[in-house]
Write a protein that binds this DNA or RNA. Structure first.
Lengths: 104, 104
DNA sequence: TTGACATGCAACCAATTGGTTGCATAAAGT
DNA sequence: ACTTTATGCAACCAATTGGTTGCATGTCAA
């Protein structure tokens, strides 16, 4: 599953934000704010898992999810070249990235 | 049209890259590398236009497209909070952004 | 003015998406 | 043991997506 696709759904982005802000959560907990069925939440989470953005493991009967934000780096790296034409702040950031800080 | 959705398709990302690298191009020119019909290219371009990522105007019989990368900033800004947990380079960048450089 | 070229519009189609409901199962609480 | 709770699996569905083809239109070149 492609990461850009995984991030293209607002609900999935909300799930990511929730995990970011509130730490590891179960399916039910993650679904609480959202106005969709539990199964719909599961589907979205599975998309995120396939994209490696989220990892899950069982703790008893609960499936606990954890955010794995590193894959999102790919997106940031794709965006970089274009950043030069954005606002001042981001163009300075782009300059920064373009300096001798490469490591890979 | 949501920007994340616009960026979620690989062909649309290719179109963006083409406009970035080769400058303003017509529909036909943009479709040349791709193995899909002209109309499919048009559809993708229209998605990018609705997302304000691309602007187009006619020059004679040709519709010339231009990249408008600034809207992508939104994506970068969404990504930012998570960057702290990425690699060293990006976490330093995040620190940089988190300093007193805010402006908005 | 005739023909070639670049495009728009519309119909159509298969596959995917995002959602649902119903039922089954395993873990935890009483 | 019984009940509740959290989940998985599968079927189903409507809407959207990404693609196609056919035909119409406006522009440019000969």
């Amino acid at each position: 599953m492609d990461i850009f696709t995984a991030l293209s759904d607002p609900i999935r982005r909300q799930l990511i934000e929730a995990l970011w802000q509130r730490g590891p959560l179960s399916i039910k907990q993650l679904g609480e704010g959202l106005n969709i069925s539990r199964q719909a939440v599961t589907k979205h989470l599975n998309v995120l898992i396939k994209a490696k953005l989220v990892s899950a493991e069982f703790s008893g009967k609960e499936r606990i999810h954890q955010l794995n934000p590193r894959p999102m780096e790919q997106v940031a790296l794709w965006l970089q070249p274009f950043a030069a034409q954005w606002d001042d702040r981001l163009s300075r950031l782009n300059t920064y990235l373009g300096e001798e800080h490469e490591q890979d």
